[in-house]
Each structure stands twice: as structure tokens, then as C-alpha cells.
């Protein structure tokens, strides 16, 4: 009984997160008040274009933003019943790699080029567990086999592996301590589709086995459709639409989400022309007043250009940051 209640509690909750990067001349508003919840064992997709602030959100959760020139200006991150924005760096270090771990985008740069891959896996294990050198090595070998690499390759260096294999090593490191939360930052963007399918399958299997929750950062709507439970669409550092995958894919209510769907060539349809979103994403050091999407939006009125736009509930119960949602859902423009 008590277990059931625990299961339905959000495992990760991000509340009103604000991340800024600053120089002496300007402040870049990378993340502007992001909130979301994630249950145990579920996957949330964070979708958006380059510079939308997706990676900054993940780095803020793990508190690995650069020491100089970046800060979490506001907001809280709750992991189970602990506010991890408040704890000391020493305590945070115990969480990183153990409770929360991250799969980085580029396997070519995420690994240490002058350390044997096996030792890189064993290092994480030794930091969070007590045991002998042999036991760490054994665990690292298990992890290699789990991600489909022969344990005989323990002593090889990263340059001896292909891109897909390197990404498997990165995944092995991330999963070595059975994390409860996995932050996957474009884990397959640098890979070919057939290898992408292998890697996503692998993450899915491991997730299921360990009941891990995952935040999957991607710009590929197809990956969201096939691997996520919930979706948050990020634009200019803000979540503009948030709901279950079914709600967002079947009834997108924000003009930007609809624009994204229109801009992707769809394998199921034959169409002469694509429907690009006109204009460019805004400069995060100089965001437009009001809704940050208004300069590119077909529904824009005077009200869009000032004040803050709040998240509103859509008819099917998901959230959307657009005051003209009713007109958008009717498809007026």
C-alpha cells in the first residue's frame, strides 16, 4: 500500500528553474522558469531547437553548469523528498553518477582519450561503492557485456572504438551504479539510424530492468514518439507545451509545436512543399517582450507582446503557454 503511494509521487520535480549565463556586458537568459515532474520509471522528452536551453536544464539538475559565468538564479530541483539545489557540493558529488547520471551528446568528446575504457567505467563504480580493485574491474566488465561489448576490450582506448561503440561505453558509465534518474542529452544524435535503433533499444531494456526514470533531450520528434511517455516542448528557455505524448502529438495547441510538426518531412505523407516556421529563434540575451514566439507567430495580437504569458490548461487537460489557444486549436490561421 505505502509502496503504491510512493510510486505515484513525482520522483523528480523541477520548480520554476531559471538559469543565466553572464559576462560583464550582457546576461544570457538560457532557462526562464521551467517546471516539470517525472514519475518513477517514466520518460520525459524535452524537445526543442539548438539554443532552446535543453542542455542547460539538464546541467542545472546535475549542478554541473560552469563555475564561472553561469548560475541557477532561481528555482528548486527535488529528487524524491530532497531539494538538491540546497545540498552541499560534497553531498551532491555522492548523488552524481550514483542516483543521477548523464549520457552526453558527443561520445567522441565525453570519454577520456588517454584512459582505458574499462578503467573509466571502474572509476565511477569505485567512487560510489566500497570494494576491492578486482570487484570494480569485474563490475566494469559486466557493464561492457551488458551494452554489447566483449569484456576482452576492457583495456582498449576510446580511439579503438567506432562512434556507436563509444556511445555504448558512455552509456555503460552512466548506468554502472544503477542510477534512479538518467539524463540523456541527445544520446543518439551523432549516430547513424541503424546504430541509433540499437542504442535506443539498449537504453529501453536497461531502463525497464532497473525501473530508471529518464529525461530524454532530443530534437527528433520521431525519437520522442517512440521512446517517451511525456513531452515538454522548449522554446527560448521556456516550456511552451507540456503533456502526455498522446495529448501533445494528437492535439498540439501551441503554434510553435504545430510549426515543428509542419516543418518535418513526413514519411507517411507526400507533399510538394514543407511548412517552415518563418524567422529565427530569438537571441537569448535579448528576448522579445511577452511571448518569446510572437515575432514568428501567425496568431500574434497586441496582447502577446507584453507581460508574462502563463501556462494554461487545454481542453484535453495538458498545458500550453498561449493565450490564443482556442483559435489555434480551431486552426484559424
Amino acid at each position: 500500500m505505502s509502496d503504491e503511494i510512493k510510486e505515484s509521487m513525482p520522483f523528480l520535480e523541477v520548480k520554476n528553474l531559471i538559469v543565466e549565463y553572464f559576462t560583464s556586458e550582457q546576461t544570457v537568459h538560457a532557462v526562464n522558469g521551467v517546471s516539470f515532474k517525472l514519475e518513477k520509471g517514466k520518460t520525459l522528452g524535452l524537445v526543442g531547437e539548438t539554443g532552446a536551453g535543453k542542455t542547460s536544464i539538464a546541467k542545472a539538475i546535475l549542478r554541473i553548469l560552469p563555475d564561472v559565468g553561469a548560475r541557477i538564479a532561481k528555482g528548486e530541483v527535488w529528487l524524491a523528498d530532497e531539494n538538491i539545489t540546497r545540498i552541499s557540493e560534497e553531498e551532491m558529488r555522492k548523488i552524481r553518477g550514483k542516483k543521477i547520471s548523464m549520457i552526453f551528446q558527443d561520445p567522441m568528446t565525453a570519454l577520456n582519450p588517454v584512459q582505458r575504457v574499462g578503467d573509466q567505467i571502474a572509476e565511477v563504480v569505485s567512487l560510489h561503492n566500497s570494494g576491492t580493485k578486482e570487484s570494480f574491474k569485474k563490475r566494469a566488465e559486466e557493464m561492457l557485456e551488458m551494452v554489447g561489448i566483449q569484456k576482452e576490450r576492457y583495456g582498449d582506448y576510446p580511439h579503438q572504438f567506432s562512434g556507436g561503440m563509444k556511445q555504448r561505453v558512455v552509456i555503460a558509465i552512466a548506468l554502472a551504479c544503477n542510477p534512479e534518474l538518467l539524463l540523456a542529452d541527445e544520446p543518439t544524435t551523432a549516430l547513424d539510424v541503424t546504430i541509433q535503433a540499437q542504442v535506443l533499444k539498449l537504453i529501453d531494456n536497461l531502463k525497464e530492468k532497473l525501473n530508471t526514470s529518464m529525461v530524454l533531450i532530443t530534437h527528433d520528434m520521431g525519437v520522442v514518439a517512440t521512446h517517451c511517455d511525456d513531452v515538454a516542448v522548449v522554446y527560448a528557455g521556456n516550456i511552451v507545451e507540456y503533456g502526455s505524448k498522446e495529448q501533445v502529438f494528437d492535439h498540439p495547441a501551441h503554434p510553435y509545436t504545430i510549426g515543428l510538426f509542419g516543418a518535418i518531412p513526413n514519411l507517411g505523407r507526400d507533399e510538394e512543399w514543407l511548412h517552415p516556421i518563418e524567422g529565427l529563434p530569438p537571441d537569448p540575451s535579448d528576448l522579445p517582450e511577452g511571448c518569446s514566439f510572437h515575432p514568428r507567430c501567425n496568431y500574434t495580437t497586441e496582447e502577446c507582446k507584453a507581460g508574462t504569458i502563463d501556462m494554461l490548461a487545454t481542453p484535453d487537460g495538458h498545458q500550453c503557454r498561449c493565450i490564443h489557444m482556442d483559435r489555434v486549436l480551431k486552426g484559424e490561421v
Binding site: 556507436g164 527528433d220 505524448k245 507517411g268
Partner: peptide, 21 residues
Amino acid sequence: SAIPSIDIHNPNKPEILKGEL
């Protein structure tokens, strides 16, 4: 088959290839 489909009601089942190039 490996292209993730954006049609959530008709997901394609990727055929996982062995090995790499």
C-alpha cells in the same frame, strides 16, 4: 525500419541489425 516514426498510433518496429559497418 530504423527511422523512428512520428505517428504514435502506428509505431514501426525497428529491425535491429547485428554489429556495425
